[in-house]
Amino acid sequence: MPQIDQIALTYGSQIFWLLLTFGFTFIVIGLGMFPKIQGTVDARDKRIADDLEAARSANAKADELEESYRVKMEKDRGDAQAVVEASKTKASEAAEKRKTKANSDIATKLAAAEADIKARSAEALKEIEGVSAEVAQDMVAKISGAKVTKAAALKETKAALKHG
């Protein structure tokens, strides 16, 4: 095995060249390039994370806005509902009041008219009584020749009218 057979002869040059090449690798590539490349990766990761964070916060903000908009709309709708409700009650109250007033007006008018009708019909009845008493007086005078006082005729007619 040459690795072992030659070891006494070659270890010096092997170690020398290894230290030289690996030293170069460590200093130039390990210490020089590796942190820069890893820094780029870290910067990119950070950038992506920041962008994601910004997007997330923007999203949350939009949600918040939408929520507040929704709440406001809900409130406005509630307000409008209340206004409508209030005006409706007010209108119906007014209508009720007018109706009661109209009803009472009608009732008074009706009462007046009824009273009028009663008075008139009483008057008419009196007139009929008077006329029929006179007629009765005349008829009695013509048929029997008896003289009937007006008061008696009236009394009789009243009784007759009452019996229909």
Partner: peptide, 18 residues
């Protein structure tokens, strides 16, 4: 130090790898 530090095929391949 008594060791011959020769430029060998091994050194060539170390340099190639690096």
């Amino acid at each position: 130090g008594g060791q011959q530090i020769a430029f060998t095929n091994s050194a060539v391949w170390m340099l190639v790898a690096v």
